[in-house]
Structures are given as structure tokens and as C-alpha cells.
Design a protein around this nucleic acid. Sequence first.
DNA 1: GTCTATAGAAAGATAGAC
DNA 2: GTCTATCTTTCTATAGAC
Lengths: 192, 192
Amino acid sequence: MTAKETKAAEKSRDAEATRAAILSAAQKHFAASGFDGVGVRDIARDAGVNAALINRYFGSKEQLFFKATQSEDHLLRLTEGDRATFGQRIAERLATRPLNDDQLDATLVMIRSVSSDVVGPELCRRANEEYVGKLAEWLGGENADQRAALIFSEILGFDMMRRMIGTAALNDEKQTETIAYLAKSIQAYVDG
Amino acid sequence: MTAKETKAAEKSRDAEATRAAILSAAQKHFAASGFDGVGVRDIARDAGVNAALINRYFGSKEQLFFKATQSEDHLLRLTEGDRATFGQRIAERLATRPLNDDQLDATLVMIRSVSSDVVGPELCRRANEEYVGKLAEWLGGENADQRAALIFSEILGFDMMRRMIGTAALNDEKQTETIAYLAKSIQAYVDG
DNA sequence: GTCTATAGAAAGATAGAC
DNA sequence: GTCTATCTTTCTATAGAC
């Protein structure tokens, strides 16, 4: 880890490091608490910078949110592999994600901020256009839009049960069985 | 509709009617905006009563929340019918629920308030013990806890996509096909 | 580039008049 | 039984000193 990546680079008057520290802390807190559940003071404290700098660098809490949550690490990456094992790959990924939600995570961000009056509408637009739409395109065939929507339903629902509600059955020693069930269910939507 | 059920009974100094009006407005607002997303002033205004009466009658916003969200209208009622068509019944129910979320609804309440520091933990306990646990008991067989958790995943995920994210594919003319897909998927978990 | 100080709004809760 | 008035805290955002 370079010096620029530590907290706010030890108050070194490095604008780049300050921006990065704020973004990193924002990703963590927005994923963990949602847009309305965290204050700019919390983010600033965690980044080791002054709260006023958030508005100085990003304009507003809302603009920070959208900067912090635009990720390229999509689950859609998994569509690049073999079609016949898509269900298995995504189920493995979902069931083995770290429970500790202290990093950027599109699923957690979505679930925890979708109810916000401020950022909810844009998050919904993003989910429908950039996720469901693209998955439907990849799926093809009959009722592709419905099947894509149902696949995302399973993804969101599973993540919510496992990481937010903390259902024990999804985090015990029967992980292999759980993955098998989920994989089969998702693969059924892929196959049409 | 009796006089007692109108707003706050026209300021008629009827404690029973006032309580009922607050509870009704609270159910609507907590389902629509979540615990943190609504203020006691909003609820009081909608109930046609003074905001101070909420604490007078219920002690606190938190206590009002739990009074307002303890419902007996469980989805688990659907376990009373034929086991072989459980998936179909629940899929029909989920896909045809009113989009307008202005009434008590355990699913919306859960999704919208699970992230709250105040009521989230109790909601999670309730979900795991009163919902997943009981469904697992009804399911029986191998990996019943896992299968029950996965069924609730589908329920929560579907409701979130359809009513909160507003995915068009789940609300268009292809409702019959959507129900068929979802029913098959849930039934697979029931059958084990 | 970073800080203090503060404006301005909104929240939950309560005391006490009527 | 219901109301007004207010205490206290917390929030985003900004002006201006350093």
C-alpha cells in the first residue's frame, strides 16, 4: 500500500489522495447503511478528512453517492463464460461472498438505498436498463425480459436473506447443497 | 364505514378511534417509506391527529412501528392448501398484488426497514424465526432450512423487483408466463 | 488544500395549558 | 383527550479564516 492510499495521506495536502480516501469510505458506508442511513460526517471521519471537504470535492452527498457507486465489477461479467454453467458460477459467487459488507457492492447498495427519495429513482433506472436489460439481451429466446428479471429477483433475494437478514441456513456447513439448489433454479431461467 | 373509522373521528375525543387512525396511517407509511423514511409528523398528519398523540398513545415511534407491523395475514396461510400447487398459489398472489403500496404488507416493511439500526435487528429475528423457521417445519425432508430460506429469497426478490424497482417485464401483459416461471421455481424447492 | 463556525431545516420527544 | 410550544439532537451545506 502506497502512502497515497493511507487515510488521507496524513494531511499531506494531496487532493488526489483525499478524493480517493473519501470515495473509499463512501463505498463502504453506502453499502453498509444505505444513502439515508449514513451522514457525510461519518464518511469524513472514516476517511480521516474534514466533512466540509466532501462538498468541496464532490458538490453534495448525492453526487458523492453516484460517483462512489458507479462500478464496473458487474455480476454480468459472469455471462462471459459457458452458458450451461452460468447458474453454478453465479450461485457459487453469491453463496461465498464475504458477509462483512465493508466494500463496494452493487447488490447491497441497491437493496439498502432503493427506498431513498433522493437516489432511489436513479438506482431503479440503472437496475432496469443496465442490468436487467443487458441480461435479457444475453439470454435471448422467449420471454427474455421476464427470465432476466426473475434471475435478478433470485440474486437480490438471496443476498438479502444471506447477508442482511442473516439467515443461518444460508451460512452453515451445508453451503454445497445451498449452491446446488440455487444454481439449478437460476439455470432453469437461463435455459428458458 | 362507521363514524369511528373516519380520520380521527372528527376530533370527537374518541381514544379508540384516534388509536385506530394512527395505526392505519402508520401501516401505510411504514410500508411505503420504511421506518427511517417517515416521520411521526407525517403519520400524524395523515391520521388527522396531533403528532404529540403518537407518543401519548404508543410511547415512541419504535413502539408504534412494532404495533403497526404485527400482522396475522401471513403468506404462510398458503401452506394450508394443496402441497403440489403451493408454488402456483404463491406465484399468483405475488404477481397480482396491488402495485400501490399503501397498506400493511410484511414484505415491503421488511425490505424497506431491514437496514434500520432501530428496528432492523428485530425484523430479522422475526423473519428467521416466524417465517423461515415455520416454513421449514412445513416443508420437512432434506435440507428443509435451506429450501425454506431459498423460497423466501424468491419471494422477497420478486417483490422487490416488481414493486420497488418497478421492472416493466414483471408488470406487462405476459403475467401468465411470469407466474408460470415463478411457480415452477418455487415448487422445485417445495418438492426438494 | 484544509479547517472552524454556523446557518437552516427537520427529527423525536415531552411539559403543561386547555 | 387534545393541543401548542419547545427542548435537544442531528443533518446537509456553505462562508470565510488560515
